[in-house]
Design a protein around this nucleic acid. Sequence first.
DNA 1: CACGAATATATCGGCTCCCGATATATTCAG
DNA 2: CTGAATATATCGGGAGCCGATATATTCGTG
Lengths: 133, 133
Amino acid sequence: MFMAPRNMTQAAFFVLTALADQPRHGYGILREVEELSEGAVQMRVGTLYGVLDRLTADALIVLDREEVQQGRLRRYYRLTDEGTAALTAEAERLAAGASAAKKRIAEGRRTPDGAPGTTGVPGTRPGLAGGLA
Amino acid sequence: MFMAPRNMTQAAFFVLTALADQPRHGYGILREVEELSEGAVQMRVGTLYGVLDRLTADALIVLDREEVQQGRLRRYYRLTDEGTAALTAEAERLAAGASAAKKRIAEGRRTPDGAPGTTGVPGTRPGLAGGLA
DNA sequence: CACGAATATATCGGCTCCCGATATATTCAG
DNA sequence: CTGAATATATCGGGAGCCGATATATTCGTG
């Protein structure tokens, strides 16, 4: 039976993003996530391997190859087609959610003396998929 | 000392978004989240009250008023200024993350025969705050 | 009138998942 | 030799989401 894909966690999202352009190994993912988020996201080692296991189990990533560089093992992972699709969908969902939030904040900022709660005329509801999906 | 705000959960984000334009009560938040996400997000009752408690404890929302409509109690919550700021910041973070992911997906889609792994020339790194923050 | 659905509140146990700490091993700089 | 960086992995605690459950009123249907 088909398992409904539960919401992707933020950690999983950033791991997939780090792997989007090329295969990377665990420690490299850690550095790349920090770099692409400009230091905003600092994923912990303890978080990474759990995420890696789950993404592998869900077939969103696969073990690409294993290399030995200067005596140190490097285990490279890469996105599957399914992983790329999932990342793309998640990116659109995030963008849509962010867009919807911004619109609503702007709505709430309008003159608070206009009989709040009584009118409620939505007219055009923004919604999530506003020009994105 | 300043508490570093731990990452906002998706449930918290959607509750704040639902409250962004006007105060709402618990059950109304549930319906509004489902509506604004076009059915994509169906928050559970068990999730809601935990989120509401945490957001209240973090002073991102406050109890606005209590009404009795047709014998049923309605407990309305509204955003605080801090809550609006947090939601705005989170919306920008989500948009930036989504944007970064899309760019990287596009990068990975380029001709895969160009000596992968050896070059690694970053050139212009997109980063998260690409024209957003 | 009885029943179910919708409205509206709230709690609890289980499960998933993130984080801090910890462990192991090699390379390189001081 | 020592410490930092690189690189792997595991474990326990705690936070947070979900399903189930409970209570109570209103309204529509039979």
